[in-house]
């Protein structure tokens, strides 16, 4: 099952590679990983999307907690949470595609952020599955390039990951 794990870690050189190294060394799946400093510049917040059986996820959480640089770990799937990912897609916008792409973008509540003679660049935000659905809905031959940030997640309501 897919899990979104959030963690706070010391914002130090090499901290990211400790997490990445842990996943490869222990053969855990890693779907996406995003990291950036928080409002406290000494802390980085990381969101990892992974999958595995309950036992594997339990081990992942324990192993992450064991890393000396990791301050706190939260499995967002243990409660209610919000997930968002940003995607930029460059699509063909010639002939019939020019109208079609605009329409698809509107349906998915995306925004066209760059217009060129032959292409649009569309910005789309949502859950990973919404972004997947958008790509599914497009004519494959129209997609020139895609770039995704990987998911970020945050607990709903009072669920707060902070030290």
């Amino acid at each position: 099952m897919k899990h979104i794990i959030s963690l706070l870690m010391e914002n130090e050189a090499g901290a990211l590679s400790r997490v990445a190294g842990l996943f490869s060394a222990r053969a855990y799946n890693i779907e996406s990983l995003t990291v950036a400093p928080t409002e406290d510049p000494t802390l980085s917040r990381m969101t990892i999307v992974t999958s595995g059986s309950d036992e594997v996820i339990e081990q992942i959480i324990k192993q992450l907690n064991k890393l000396v640089d990791v301050v706190k770990v939260l499995d967002l799937n243990d409660g209610r949470y919000i997930e968002r990912e940003l995607m930029l897609v460059k699509v063909k916008a010639t002939g019939p595609f020019r109208e079609e792409m605009k329409r698809m973008c509107d349906i998915f509540r995306g925004r066209i952020i760059d217009v060129a003679d032959g292409s649009y660049t569309i910005e789309l935000t949502g859950t990973g599955s919404k972004l997947d659905a958008f790509l599914e809905a497009l004519d494959k031959t129209a997609i020139l390039e895609t770039v995704r940030t990987g998911a970020s997640g945050i607990g709903r309501g009072d669920r707060i990951l902070k030290i």
């Binding site: 050189a13 090499g14 590679s17 400790r18 190294g21 060394a25 000396v68 640089d69």
Partner: peptide, 16 residues
């Protein structure tokens, strides 16, 4: 050294 030993140490440091 920090990179090479990362998987086989409890922790490591590069003093900068």
């Amino acid at each position: 050294m920090v990179g090479i030993t990362r998987p086989c140490v409890k922790h490591n440091f590069l003093v900068k």
